[in-house]
Each structure stands twice: as C-alpha cells, then as structure tokens.
Amino acid sequence: MKKQIRGVLTAVVTPFDPSGEVCPQRLRAQVRRQVKYDNGVFCNGTNGEFFVLSLNEKRLVTETCVEEVAGKVPVVAHIGEISTATTIRLGKDVAAMGVDAVSVITPYFVPLKQSELIAHYRAIADAVPVPVFLYNIPGRTGNTIEPATAAILADHPNIVGIKDSAGSYESLKGFLDAVKGRTDFDVLSGPDHLAHQGFLEGCSACISGLANVSPEGVSLIWKNFRDGNIEKSKAAQDFISGLRKDLYAVAFAPAAVKKAALLLGEDVGDSRYPIVFSDEDLATIRQVVAKYGTVPAL
C-alpha cells in the first residue's frame, strides 16, 4: 500500500565519537531535537555521510533512529549501493527494523541507461517489503533519473515517489509535471532553497540537510504553508535560503552542516571524510551560526 509522507524530513547527520566511531547516544539526541519540531527523520543520506559508513554502521544508524523516534514521526532510510543485490540486502535489513520507507540513489561510478535504471529499481521494489522512494542526485552519482523514467516506475505498486536533489527548479518541475494528476506517487524536494516552491507546486515533503542547523526554521516553511500562511512560509524560506547561501559557500554540505551544528553546541563530532577547514573557513561558519542560530519572529 502506498503511504504518503508529508512535511519535513531532516537528512540527519551521523554523529561520531572522538575516536571516529558512530555514536548512538549522540544520534539519539539529534533525533529528539528534530522530533521536537515535528520533523521526520531521513537517515544515512548525504548529510548522514552514507558514503563513508559500512553496511553494519548503516544498520546501527537506522535501528537507533527508529527506536528513538518510537513512531512519533516518519523514518525513511537511504539504502542505495552500487549493486542491486547489496541494496536489496540492506533494504530488507532496515525494513525489518520498522522504517516507514526507504530511499535509493542511482548506482554511482558506472554509467547506466534509463532501461537499466528501470530494471534496477523494479528489482529493489519487488524485493524490499516497505515503500521505495527513487532518489535523483546526478551531481554526485553521475546518473540521472529522467522524468519519463520516474513516470514509468511510478506504476510499480511499491514505488511511492522520488526525492529530487538535482539542485534546480527545472529538474524538480520536470518530475512534478511527469506525474501530474497522480495521487499514488509523490515528489519530495531535496535542495533546501526549493522547499517552499516545491510545496506550492505539489511536493508532499522536503528532505532538509539544513534542518540539522535550524530545525525550527525549516519546520516553519512547512507548518506555515500547511496552515495557509503563504507569506510566513516564504519568510521562513528566505531565512533558510540565506543560511544555505552563506554556509555552503564554505565547503561540501555535510561537513559544513556538521561544523555549524558543532558550533551551535550540538555534540555531533567531525566529518569522517577528508575535509580541512582553514581559519578563514571557521571564522565564516562562526559568523553564519551567529546570524542564523536563532530563528527570528516570522
């Protein structure tokens, strides 16, 4: 049965302890921080640094999120791997933990035809016993899910939607147009600067990395939109778009988000992948935190 997920899901960071290991206790604190603002949880995504986590660590992260959420908000786990078989194996494992859905990026490193992507996603959706979201992020994987391909995959009874993180309004609109009129396939916006516009045009939810920095700010985009206050939703979007512009000028999103959270007093540890912040970078992030650490009255 296809289930709609609405509102905000935070692409929650994966906290590491001082030795660089996944820290469930710190992760639980971050989950509680999101639940406080009614934000759902999207774990093992880009901001969760899935690309430097082992399969067992991804299982641990998912299990921790599901346990801490305890049914209060939706939990979606990203399971995309290069091979179809490994993706299915991980998907079955996290499905047994009680996630509401899974999300799957395209295979990366190897270029694929649209017909091959269709076969890949159909095999996953056939095998994994929870709803599946496609995940389009061509800038990182090198493979693009075309809108026409998404429309074909929407006919599968276990494929419920797509998260588009291509980064442009044109890409997001392409998916919205491709499935226009369908009530059984949802489009989720990935880029934080498109959350409000996405809601206006029919997205059911947004997946936000910046909610790790400003969970309240992102939640207000959705809550004001849901309540019919479009002006306040747009004001919240302008606040988050400013945060995005200033913070992402420093470094690749996961590292910048994590460092900002640290400077806000959140015990999330450092990023695991190679990243070096200069003194100038750190000064800029401190300025960003000082400017956006508190949500203004909107």
Rank of each mutant, 00 (worst) to 15 (best):
T86P: 11
A77S: 15
Q114S: 07
S83P: 06
R59H: 10
I79R: 08
L112W: 04
V76D: 02
V69M: 14
V76T: 04
M97Y: 04
D100S: 09
V69Y: 13
V69L: 14
R89N: 08
E68T: 14
M97H: 00
T62D: 10
A70C: 12
A127L: 11
Y121Q: 03
V104I: 14
V75S: 08
V76I: 09
Y121L: 01
C65Y: 12
K92Q: 15
V94E: 15
E63R: 09
E68I: 05
K92L: 14
I118T: 08
A96L: 04
A127I: 10
T106E: 01
T62K: 07
T62G: 12
T106H: 00
G91C: 15
A95E: 05
V61C: 13
V102A: 03
I124Y: 09
Y108K: 02
E68D: 08
V104W: 06
H120C: 06
I82R: 07
I124A: 12
A119V: 10
E81H: 13
P111G: 10
G91K: 11
G71N: 11
H78I: 04
E116Q: 09
V128A: 09
T106R: 00
I124G: 01
G71C: 06
G91N: 15
G71F: 06
S115N: 03
A96K: 05
L112K: 05
V73R: 01
V130Y: 05
E67M: 08
R122D: 05
R89P: 00
S115Q: 10
P111D: 13
D100T: 08
K113L: 06
G71Q: 04
Y108C: 08
V104M: 11
R89A: 13
K72H: 11
A95P: 02
A77C: 14
S83N: 11
V128L: 09
V73I: 08
A70V: 08
P74E: 02
V102K: 01
R89H: 12
A95N: 04
A95G: 04
R59A: 12
T86I: 10
Y121C: 01
V99C: 03
A125P: 07
K92D: 07
H78K: 04
S115F: 00
D100I: 07
I82N: 03
L60E: 11
V73N: 01
V66Y: 04
V128H: 02
I118E: 13
Q114F: 05
T106S: 13
V99I: 06
S103H: 06
V102Q: 03
L90F: 15
R122A: 07
V99N: 01
I124N: 05
A77N: 08
E63M: 05
S103A: 11
G80I: 04
I79N: 03
V104F: 08
G91A: 15
A95C: 07
Y121F: 14
A125L: 14
E68M: 11
E81N: 13
D100N: 14
S115Y: 00
P129F: 06
A85W: 12
A101I: 07
V69S: 15
G80M: 02
P111S: 13
D126Y: 15
V94K: 10
L60G: 10
T106F: 00
V61W: 10
L60F: 08
S115D: 09
Q114T: 05
T62F: 03
